[in-house]
């Protein structure tokens, strides 16, 4: 049932120009950044060969690309998730799902999996760029894998937050803006702490999305970082399901 709902969600996405333009624009932007990094690498190649323990191709090109892809998609994901429930509420099509023999959990997971399908398609095209470097050099596959896991988890978290924001309003734009606000807040939440001291203390570093992302794309795989993302996703999906239930109750 989840996949039935997910496939409709994905199909509807591709029936509108939104999905295609997002794919094209993300690809263009990341491609441009990627080329910039390759250019930079070629410029510093001579100096690198003089170094004793030079950073590799992966560190110099792929980690920055992943890092920038995260920021670009932070801007894009809210636009994908904003319609999920909010638009169904506004067009009053949610009744179709609510009066069918489907549980709330299936509705939320169906929609979530649908958008994640699109995110994976996007990721696949992003991944093609680093892979193309294999034709001319050696890559640290472990580091790429770690970065890929990080980016996947990050986008899955963005999507989960977006789904939740979409359940609390019937205005897609409000859903998009609040998702964007929440994600950006979690992105910058420990910046102030960083200025005061190098040694981050308090609760903010735990909350920061960035703090858990940076080590992973640099190849430092900590289970606590992965757990952070998994908890983040679960929390927002559970909240969405609760929210959908609560909509039927007393206002």
């Amino acid at each position: 049932m989840i996949f039935t709902l997910a496939s409709r969600e994905l199909r509807s996405l591709f029936l509108s120009p939104l999905a295609w333009s997002i794919l094209a624009i993300v690809q263009f932007l990341i491609g441009y950044i990627f080329l910039g990094q390759v250019d930079l690498y070629l410029q510093v190649q001579a100096q690198l060969s003089a170094m004793q323990n030079p950073p590799g191709l992966t560190e110099l090109i792929i980690a920055p690309v992943f890092s920038n892809a995260a920021i670009i998609l932070l801007l894009i994901i809210p636009l994908l998730t904003m319609r999920l429930i909010a638009e169904e509420k506004r067009n009053q099509t949610l009744a179709l799902l609510l009066s069918a023999p489907i549980s709330m959990t299936e509705i939320i997971l169906g929609k979530y999996v649908g958008v994640m399908g699109f995110v994976f398609i996007n990721l696949f095209f992003v991944l093609l760029m680093p892979i193309s470097l294999l034709s001319g050099g050696n890559l640290d596959i472990g580091m790429i894998a770690s970065g890929l896991i990080a980016l996947t988890l990050l986008l899955a978290s963005f999507t989960a937050a977006g789904v939740y924001m979409s359940t609390i309003t019937s205005q897609p734009t409000i859903a998009a803006v609040s998702t964007f606000g929440l994600l950006l807040l979690l992105w910058v939440i420990d910046w102030a702490v960083n200025i005061n001291s190098n040694q981050a203390t308090g609760v903010t570093p735990y909350l920061s999305i960035l703090k858990h992302y940076q080590p992973l794309i640099n190849g430092v795989f900590k289970s606590s970082d992965v757990t952070y993302y998994l908890l983040f996703i679960t929390t927002f999906l559970v909240l969405s399901i609760r929210r959908l239930h609560a909509d039927r109750l007393q206002h």
């Binding site: 509108s16 099509t93 009066s99």
Partner: peptide, 25 residues
């Protein structure tokens, strides 16, 4: 709810149709 809703067909005030799909889809 699942058992009850399996026995239920509902047409709300606004027909809950997805405008981007064809009738068959």
């Amino acid at each position: 709810p699942k058992n009850a809703k399996a026995n239920l067909g509902y047409l709300p005030e606004q027909p809950p149709v997805y405008k981007e799909l064809t009738v068959d889809e």
